[in-house]
Amino acid sequence: MTDFISTPIFGILISLIAFEIGCFIYHKTKLTIFNPLFISIILIISFLLKFNISVDSYNEGAQFISFFLGPATVILAVPLYKKIQLLKENSLPILVGIASGSCIGITSIVSLSYLLNLDKALNISLVPKSVTVPIGIEISKQLGGIPAVTAAAIILTGIIGAVIGPLICKCFRIKDNVAVGIAIGTASHAVGTTKALELGETEGAMSGLSIGIAGLITVFAAPFILKILNIFLK
């Protein structure tokens, strides 16, 4: 058994089983709080703690799943291609909306971290919380953050966005499909986009577009905004 746990097959197998259980629970309940990713994370952590299995042993196989995060994000371009005409007609408000959302997200997390007196490294690690994992981890490394904390923050942000994003849009009576998709994608990246796809093809396409653009904006804007806020928040 110990030999099996140390092989890559173990990490891959437990990840797939946990995610399938999460999908089953979600489809049975239809409750957004039972997001398959959220359920699978809880199951995997519980399993590793219960049987005293190290994270390194699990990562022997899980790292291969992480490798496919990039290609999985790229495939979101398919629904966007189907809505390319809609993108052309609304290009300016879409770009302004994504840019505004990204910059406000960075500013708010830095300001709150300052108010809560968080450690600088932790503060920086939370900056790329609203971009997809491959981009967020690289931003965290370049700024001097903690990649593991960044990955956890990104996943948590995505799950929260998928759960409460549609509810917030309803509360504020945001009915435009493009606006809903941009809001969810900019705030909660790929995990939120899975929920946006459930809402409609337009929402999913716009949310998928937001992932890439928000990532690029964050790469360039995060260092600049951090410098400006550090001057004013000292």
Rank of each mutant, 00 (worst) to 15 (best):
L69G: 07
G70P: 12
G70K: 11
G70Y: 11
G70W: 11
P71F: 03
A72M: 10
A72F: 04
A72H: 06
T73L: 15
I75V: 15
I75D: 04
L76I: 03
L76G: 03
A77I: 14
V78H: 12
V78G: 11
P79S: 10
P79V: 10
P79L: 08
P79A: 10
L80E: 06
L80G: 08
L80V: 11
L80C: 10
Y81K: 12
Y81C: 07
Y81D: 09
I84T: 07
I84A: 05
Q85F: 13
Q85G: 15
Q85I: 12
Q85L: 14
Q85Y: 14
L86R: 09
L86A: 13
K88F: 15
E89Y: 08
N90Y: 01
N90E: 00
N90P: 03
N90D: 04
L92I: 15
P93A: 00
L95F: 13
V96H: 01
G97M: 06
G97I: 09
G97V: 07
I98S: 02
I98E: 04
A99I: 13
S100C: 06
S100T: 11
S100Y: 04
S102W: 08
S102L: 09
C103G: 01
C103E: 03
I104N: 03
I104T: 05
I104P: 02
G105L: 06
I106P: 02
I106C: 02
I106R: 02
I106F: 04
T107W: 07
S108W: 05
S108R: 06
I109D: 02
I109Y: 00
I109T: 00
V110H: 07
S111I: 12
L112Q: 04
L112E: 02
L112S: 02
S113H: 05
S113W: 01
S113V: 06
Y114T: 06
Y114K: 09
L115H: 03
L116G: 06
L116D: 09
N117M: 11
N117P: 06
L118S: 10
L118P: 07
L118T: 09
D119M: 06
D119V: 10
D119A: 10
A121Y: 06
L122E: 09
I124S: 03
I124W: 03
I124K: 04
I124T: 08
S125T: 01
S125I: 00
L126V: 00
L126F: 03
V127T: 08
V127Q: 09
V127A: 07
V127Y: 08
P128T: 01
